[in-house]
């Protein structure tokens, strides 16, 4: 960047350019094959998904495709209940992300802006809850959802996801809300705004970047979850896509084109979220790691 702003041929140009030129070729020599290798599993699965069953049976999984068909997708969608599973996943993800962000923004607002006694302890305890290994919760959670009569419902799955995630989201949002300028709050109070109106008019709009980052992150986490779904749900018709996929694997164990197609379908929604919100996603990953 700096090199281009200098007049061409000026004395400063060569030393600035040299390190760049020296570094570049090696980086690419290593990174190009590595990147290809990294993407190869996705590419292979993509190729297999569009091959026909007979082609795979005759020429093997590793062969380059000699056929192009959407049979794999068709079978996965018709026989595998993939549409219903996707619907379940989307419902659970949408409800859980909205509910978690709403609740945790409340908690973060009250902890960051009010003199609640012991608020630092409360905050760290909430974060600690999210760090617990889920295994220590599985058996009791299954039992509690049964005794509440909500076992095997999507509601139970949403509730567990919200309860387990809330500590982390609160912690992150607290860090963000604490940094909002106090002058705004003072001014709003002088204008007679109460805690509720300040939350709606000031805190929520200003926290949008942090909320977006968390939403991108939470979407992939909840959509990709498997263990809570297996713990709370019993009937196949309620399964989200991850659990349905493992079932499909049992039913079509040698139909690799069907399995590949179904895995791609399961991966697409989070990939879309990633590419649309790559910036928010990456900044979401960084929260909680503050260097």
């Amino acid at each position: 960047m700096t090199a281009t702003t200098l007049a061409p041929g000026s004395a400063a140009t060569p030393p600035l350019r040299r390190p760049r030129r020296a570094r570049s070729p090696w980086l690419h020599v290593v990174m190009v094959p590595l990147t290809l290798l990294w993407l190869s599993p996705v590419a292979y699965v993509g190729l297999i998904a569009f091959r026909s069953f007979d082609d795979i049976a005759a020429r093997g999984l590793a062969a380059l495709p000699a056929s192009f068909t959407l049979d794999g997708f068709a079978t996965a969608f018709s026989g595998g209940g993939l549409v219903r599973a996707l619907g379940n996943s989307i419902t659970v993800t949408a409800c859980a992300v909205l509910a978690s962000l709403l609740l945790s923004s409340w908690a973060a607002y009250s902890l960051s802006r009010f003199a609640i006694p012991g608020r630092k302890t409360i905050l760290l305890a909430m974060l600690a809850g999210n760090l617990l290994p889920p295994q220590i919760l599985l058996v009791p959670v299954a039992r509690i959802s049964e005794s509440l009569g909500i076992a095997d419902t999507l509601f139970a799955l949403v509730a567990v996801q919200v309860g387990f995630g809330i500590g982390f989201y609160t912690f992150v949002l607290h860090g963000f809300m604490r940094g909002l300028p106090e002058e705004l709050f003072e001014a709003a109070r002088l204008d007679g705004a109460g805690a509720g109106r300040i939350y709606l008019r000031i805190v929520l709009p200003l926290s949008r970047p942090a909320m977006a980052a968390l939403a991108a992150l939470a979407t992939t986490w909840i959509f990709n979850d498997l263990i809570w779904a297996l713990t709370v749900l019993r009937s196949e018709s309620k399964f989200p896509i991850t659990a349905a996929l493992l079932n499909l694997m049992g039913g079509y164990s040698s139909a690799w084109n069907v399995i590949a197609a179904a895995s791609l379908v399961a991966a697409v929604p989070t990939a879309v979220v990633f590419f649309l919100f790559q910036k928010q996603f990456v900044s979401g990953l960084l929260v909680g790691s503050n260097k």
């Binding site: 009250s110 809850g129 919760l137 309860g163």
Partner: peptide, 24 residues
């Protein structure tokens, strides 16, 4: 601390207590 803020804090806290700390 206004009442509403207590509700804002205690509701999420209760959800986490019920689904995380109590099962643990």
């Amino acid at each position: 601390v206004p009442l509403l803020v207590w509700v804002f804090l205690l509701l999420p806290l209760a959800v986490e207590l019920f689904w995380v700390f109590w099962p643990a």
